[in-house]
Design a protein around this nucleic acid. Structure first.
Length: 561
RNA sequence: UGGGGCGUAGCCAAGUGGUAAGGCAGCGGAUUUUGAUUCCGCCAUGCGGAGGUUCGAAUCCUCCCGCCCCAGCCA
């Protein structure tokens, strides 16, 4: 396993306390956990919590974590998902080494244990149709009633179960049930189904089986087979723990794993349910599972979120048993915090406004030094080209600015980053009255950005030289939903943010950006963190905005206006 | 109204009888060739509520309130 983060303390939570106590008391010698996804969909940010908890905790205690696919329902699972999940777990930074398993690896053992239960008189084959079985199960407040097949002789159960396995019966004809207690207040103990008939080919076992164990019959036993010591799952499985324990106690399993539950991760302005995510893709509301607006690993990766930032985010959130909804700002912070330290700085003008430096010699250019990352001196410097014609950001000029706007306006001097102090002399307008060009003058004595006479300017703005700049497309992303609890009113699609994607096609980048690799994070100075999208082609770069820089000016404007 | 959980600041979250950590957000201020970063300060007489036990309660007891999960041959 990898992915130790130097930054930040390891998580301290009740799971750690339990494990530490188990180690201390000698109840376990090596900690073994597992991340057990069902291969029926793509991983999303919610899974990151489970992955980090399972892999991270094992790592911290010097144990190991298995990657185990819970592939007990061939009607919903696909190899494609298995591959995607493996890729995504690796991307997050974890390695299961030799410990890749599948519940389907244990189908024969599980089957044998089912027969063991039958022989012990603790499981029976039930012919009751599904509808009727549901009615017999009772309700939340009324006890269930025994099936009329509940007291079948062991030999008959064995014979029927073997014939189920042999494929003699159609789907749904019979099931194998544990014989526990139809009157239990815990519905999971009302003779839960252990095996069902499913004539469906399995991604891994093919047509070898036509009966498949349920989650309850597979999970705990798989844990036991693998020697998992701490089986960590989410809160909704809490009611299953008595069944988990019952099976472990009534089967000759080689170990005694323990299940512990924690609250799953939820984020505001975000939807994580498989059903909703699937609907977004299927209805074309997003471009696909890897749309940068999606909370999937694929989406986050394409958007440029570094795995280390995701791990840090999960660490900050913590692990507890209270249902909670984490503020997206927490995620944003983790992303910015990481990117600030590692991203190279570059200049890029998203909405260009042409600038002509009137007193700069025609046809001449020069090179200036620019720092690659002020947070990391080792990143060095680069040369950037300056010339008579430049582009600056449209919003860095205002003809009639409000108080406290200290960027370009007629008559004002500002600094062009790493270049010169320039003064705006005139705004040239078109017939429609729109500003189309700025006429400025520069002070040749301020090369690099400092005035020999010590005079100060209020603002430093970014720019690119018109002649050498690269034309590019930039995609800006905003939250996919307009409300913190999308879908709460019953119509998820009505809460979609119409401005979740903004495409800018006339952007101008400094030439150094031509070398950026897909997924590589860079900071466009004063704007945010970006990375080239896979849609980029030679000569036609496309950048995604991972996240904007904090902008107290914009915030103040929004608050004041 | 069965069973199982959970309620500490706007959002996460420590704390488990000795007088409310930390982070995010927010608000001030300093530094700044990114209105970024960084730094400093502020931000719960209060722990869902009411009683009780105790010298002392977020922590123990009682009652109450609220929220979440479970009636798949899904996981």
């Amino acid at each position: 396993m990898t992915a130790t983060d130097k930054t930040g303390e390891p998580g301290r939570d009740f799971i750690h306390d339990i494990i530490a106590a188990d180690l201390e008391a000698g109840r376990v010698s090596t900690v073994v956990t597992r991340f057990p996804p069902e291969p029926n969909g793509y991983l999303h940010i919610g899974h990151a919590k489970s992955i980090c908890l399972n892999f991270g905790t094992a790592l911290e205690f010097g144990g190991r974590c298995h990657l185990r696919f819970d592939d007990t329902n061939p009607t919903k699972e696909e190899q494609e998902y298995i591959d995607a999940i493996k890729r995504d777990v690796r991307w997050l930074g974890f390695d299961w080494g030799e410990h890749l398993y599948h519940a389907s690896d244990y189908f024969q053992q599980l089957y044998d244990w089912a027969e063991h239960l039958i022989r012990a008189g603790k499981a029976y084959v039930d012919d009751t149709p599904a509808e009727e079985m549901r009615a017999l199960r009772g309700t939340l407040t009324e006890p269930g009633r025994n099936s009329r097949f509940r007291d079948r002789p062991v030999e008959e159960n064995l014979d029927l179960f073997r014939r189920m396995r042999a494929g003699e019966f159609p789907n749904g004809a019979r099931v194998l049930r544990a014989k526990i207690d139809m009157a239990s207040g815990n519905i999971n103990l009302r003779d839960p189904v252990l095996y069902r008939i499913l004539h469906a080919p399995h991604p891994r076992t093919g047509t070898a089986w036509c009966i498949y164990p349920t989650y309850d019959f597979a999970h705990g036993q798989s844990d036991a087979i693998e020697g998992v010591t701490h089986s960590l799952c989410t809160l909704e499985f809490e009611d299953h723990r008595p069944l988990y324990d019952w099976l472990i106690e009534n089967l000759p399993v080689p170990a005694r794993p323990r299940q512990y539950e924690f609250a799953r991760l939820a984020l505001n302005y975000t939807v994580l349910s498989k059903r909703f995510l699937t609907a977004l893709v299927r209805e074309g509301r997003v471009a696909g599972w890897d749309d940068p607006r999606m909370p999937t690993f694929a989406g986050l990766r394409r958007r440029g979120v570094p795995p280390a930032a995701l791990r840090d985010f999960v660490r900050r959130v913590g692990v507890a048993r209270a249902n909670s909804v984490v503020d997206l700002a927490m995620f944003d912070h983790a992303v910015r915090d990481h990117l600030n330290r590692v991203a190279l700085r570059r200049m890029a003008v998203l909405r260009p406004l042409r600038v002509v430096i009137e007193n700069y010699p025609e046809g001449e250019t020069e090179e200036l030094d620019a720092v690659n990352n002020p947070e990391d001196p080792a990143a060095g410097t680069r040369r950037i080209r300056f010339g008579r014609e430049l582009y600056v950001e449209r919003e860095d000029f205002m003809e009639n600015p409000p108080r406290k706007f200290y960027r370009l306006t007629p008559g004002r001097e500002v600094r062009l980053r790493y270049a010169y102090l320039v003064t705006c002399r005139e705004a040239v307008k078109n017939a429609a009255g729109e500003v189309v060009e700025l006429r400025c003058t520069y002070d040749p004595a301020t090369r690099g950005g400092n005035a020999p006479d010590g005079r100060k300017v209020h603002a430093t703005i970014h720019w690119v030289a018109a002649a050498s700049s690269l034309a590019t497309e930039v995609r800006l992303y905003n939250p996919l939903f307009t409300r913190p609890d999308p879908g709460a009113d019953g119509d998820l699609m009505a809460d979609l943010n119409p401005n979740s994607l903004e495409i800018l096609r006339e952007c101008r980048l400094e030439p150094a950006l031509a070398e950026a690799a897909v997924g590589e994070a860079v900071q466009f100075e004063r704007q945010g963190y970006f990375c080239p999208d896979p849609d980029s082609a030679p000569g036609r770069l496309v950048f995604n905005r991972t996240i904007a820089l904090r902008d107290s000016w914009a915030k103040a404007q929004a608050a004041g206006g």
